[in-house]
């Protein structure tokens, strides 16, 4: 069953066609990886899905709804979460506060209720905290709960960003180069977590990734793009042996 469908998706920046008419489907419950050389348009596709960029043409359908023109702040509530290549956290807040903010889209209480801390708010807060603690346990972040994020090492901050994305209770998570900047050991942990996110939490994963060992290890399907165009889709092995993909990476 398709959870996300991009149809003839395109965006131009001036004369540059960063994404040039790409069509793809992501099935519910799969791990779908986008690969391609630098500047191929991978992150741009993510920015289109999370609505930070407005598509020049084409259509995005998520879980049965057309989200092509949905305002970016409604995407989280609709069930799409993401991480960024360079880690975009609330640097001056603690890990716990970052994760609690992940629940923002799902809070329905009103300001005066919050100021008076009415029972309704207390119940909601307790439920939010319970969910956040589940994610903290899931990703083994207990040690860092009350540490201000900017003081933590890069590898941990990358995991925190995944945790925060999970706290928005997504159906689909977009991971933008999750392994960049991680050491070998951390990358191994990452491949387990990505599978657990899908298997235990039932979340569909779309990722952009350069580490081919990781790609082969976890992906169900791979899509290769170059110059904003799709070159191949299929199993990791098929795509990597595809002549156009080899040409894109090696030139010629």
């Amino acid at each position: 069953m398709t959870i996300l469908r991009a149809q003839d998706l395109a965006i131009n920046f001036g004369g540059i066609k960063a994404v040039d008419g790409i069509t793809f489907d992501v099935n519910k419950g799969e791990i779908f990886t986008i690969i391609g050389p630098n500047g191929a348009g991978k992150t741009t596709i993510f920015n289109l899905i999370s609505r930070i960029y407005q598509a020049t043409s084409g259509k995005l359908v998520f879980d049965g709804d057309d989200i092509t023109h949905m305002p970016p702040h409604r995407i989280a509530g609709r069930g799409i979460a993401r991480t960024f290549q360079n880690v975009e956290l609330f640097e001056h807040a603690t890990l716990l506060q970052n994760l609690l903010l992940g629940q923002h889209a799902h809070r329905k209480t009103r300001p005066w209720e919050e100021v008076l801390f009415l029972p309704r708010v207390r119940v909601a807060e307790r439920e939010i905290r319970r969910r956040v603690e589940e994610i903290i346990d899931f990703l083994d972040l207990q040690h860092y709960r009350d540490v201000v994020v900017q003081h933590l090492p890069y590898g941990v901050r990358k995991v925190i960003e995944v945790a925060r994305a999970l706290c928005t209770q997504p159906k689909l998570i977009l991971l933008d180069e999750p392994s960049s900047g991680l050491n070998v050991e951390e990358t191994e942990d990452l491949s387990f977590w990505i599978r657990d996110i899908r298997d235990d939490l039932g979340i569909t994963v779309v990722m952009v990734e350069h580490d081919l060992a990781l790609v082969n290890d976890v992906s169900d399907r791979v899509m290769a793009v170059n110059y904003g165009r799709l070159i191949a889709t299929g199993t990791p092995a098929d795509v990597q042996n595809h002549p156009d993909v080899i040409k894109a990476y090696l030139g010629g």
Binding site: S50, I52, P72, H73, R74, I75, A76, G77, A81, R82, F84, E88, L89, F90, E91, H92, A93, L101, G102, H104, A105, H106, R164, A165, T168
Partner: peptide
Amino acid sequence: LAMQAASQNQLAAYCMGI
């Protein structure tokens, strides 16, 4: 809290539904 979040990181704030 949304104001604080937006002041620390606008991109991330959007992704949190702010």
